[in-house]
Structures are given as C-alpha cells and as structure tokens.
C-alpha cells in the first residue's frame, strides 16, 4: 500500500479549500483560524512575531545530534509526564526534516489517544485517525492527512471513545507501524507520557530510536530519571529540554557571562 501515491491521487483532504494556494505564498505568510479561534484575525498584523526565529536550526541540531533523518527509521518522542512538549518537539522535528530533505517522506503520528491535539492544531477533522485504524481496521490512507509541506503527512489520534480497550497494545498497532515504515522514510511517533500511560513503553519497542522531552522548570529530575529507566538504553537518543526561558534579563546575562 503506497499511501503517498493514494494521497496524491485523492488530493489534500482535510485542509481548508484555499490551503494549497496559500502554500505557494510561503508558510510565514499563511494565517488562518480554527473553529474556536475567532480572535485570530486581530493577530494578522503581528504574524511576523509568530515566526519562530532560528526554529529550523534548532530542530536541525536536534535531529542531527539524534542521528535521525538520514536513514529510514521510526522515531518515538516521549516524556515522563503530560504537558512537557512532546508534540511541540515532534512537530518541530517533522517540519525540519521534511524541509531539509524534500525527497524524504515524513509522517507524524499522534499516538496520545487521551490528549489528542494535532487535529485541533492543524484545524482538521480529528476522525478518522489512528484510533480508527486500530479499532475499526480503517486503512491507513484514511487517517493520513497532507500538510502544506508536500513530503510531510500527519496522522491524528482520532476521536477517543470509551469501551475500546487499549488499542495501542493490540498487535494491529505493530502492523500499522510496519505499514507506515514501508510508505515513509521517517516516521515520528508522538507518544503518550511514559509515567502516565504505560502504552508508551510498548510503543518505544516499535521504534528505532527514542527522544525524551523534559519540560524545563516543571518536571522533577526524579521523574525524568524514572521515565528514562523504562526506555531501552540502546534506543534512547537523548533528551530535549523544552520551554527554556531564562528569567534573568539579557543585559545581566551578558554582563555576568552566563
């Protein structure tokens, strides 16, 4: 099953009608609102502030140090507890790799079924998603959504519903990951928090490499250590510290040399 070919055939379903046109003008000039984002129009004149300076270089450094992007592999991004920025790092890595390697196909998969956010972030329908593939045996093609980057696709988690058991623990999950591995060069799994959801540990076994995200100033060192202990050391590529913002004024940092 070649998901890319199918997607190219079916078009960019799930995106706004004019999204493809906007792509031509460049990502920085593109601005749109979600259904719950009615005030966004007010930010139109400040969109330049939203450009994350040195964002590309930042994630380029991360994936380079992690040894990702150069070979086909499945990379899992996890954290100790929720809210540490797994999705932020996953998105950043996926975008950077997709931009840096236009000939490589990148897939970002949201596996945190309890806190799905990708659909909302991209302003797309959350279903069908990964959950539908696992529970309803929907084809992967149905869950894959294109983005403004031609070689980057996403798979949202889908709509969570009670009574579905633990679909991430099913053997079908491994089959889905295998399918992704065949269709994409780089698959980035956005995992649940390891200490909050033990499914994440199983998913790290399906990945070739694991990156652990730590929220600066929030996550206690002990929890990070407990989470890291549960990851296969041979797969652990390293740690990304997210949300670092020094409260020390810049002039003082320059003066004190810190």
């Amino acid at each position: 099953m070649n998901v890319i070919a199918d997607l190219q055939h079916h078009g960019a379903a799930g995106l706004p009608p004019d999204a493809e046109d906007d792509t031509a003008t460049g990502a920085g000039a593109w601005l749109r609102t979600t259904s719950s984002n009615t005030d966004l129009a007010k930010l139109g004149d400040v969109q330049h502030e939203w450009l994350f300076k040195d964002c590309d270089e930042l994630f380029r450094g991360i994936y380079t140090r992690a040894g990702t992007g150069f070979a086909a592999e499945v990379l899992a991004v996890c954290s100790a507890v929720v809210g540490e920025g797994k999705t932020t790092v996953s998105v950043g890595l996926a975008v950077s790799i997709a931009q840096d390697f236009p000939d490589r196909r990148v897939l970002l998969v949201e596996t945190d079924l309890q806190r799905p956010i990708l659909a909302d972030d991209f302003g797309i329908q959350s279903s069908p998603g990964l959950l539908d593939c696992l529970v309803n045996k929907e084809p992967l093609l149905a869950a894959v959504r294109p983005t403004f980057l031609a070689n980057l696709h996403i798979v949202p988690a889908g709509v969570a519903a009670s009574g579905r058991g633990r679909p991430l623990r099913s053997s079908h999950m491994a089959a889905v990951v295998d399918a992704m591995r065949q269709s994409y060069d780089v698959v980035i799994l956005d995992l649940p928090a390891i200490l909050a959801n033990s499914d994440a540990i199983l998913l790290t076994d399906l990945a070739d490499g694991v990156i652990c995200v730590v929220r600066a100033g929030i996550t206690p060192v002990a929890m990070v250590n407990r989470a890291v202990e549960q990851i296969d050391p041979s797969k652990l590529r390293g740690v990304v510290i997210n949300g670092t913002d020094s409260a020390i004024p810049g002039w003082l940092r320059r003066l004190a040399g810190i």
Binding site: N37, D39, L43, W50, G92
Partner: peptide, 23 residues
C-alpha cells in the same frame, strides 16, 4: 506552550492560537 508549538508548525499548516486565551 501552545503558541510555541503552533508557531513551530506554521510551515506545515498549523493554525495560530487566538490572543484572547482560547486555543
């Protein structure tokens, strides 16, 4: 944190959050 994530994902088509405090 949401703003940061979406700003990072802007090249891929992420929506920006509203300034009023809602996502």
């Amino acid at each position: 944190s949401v703003a940061t994530r979406r700003a990072i994902g802007v090249p891929a088509g992420m929506a920006l959050p509203a300034s009023g405090g809602t996502k």
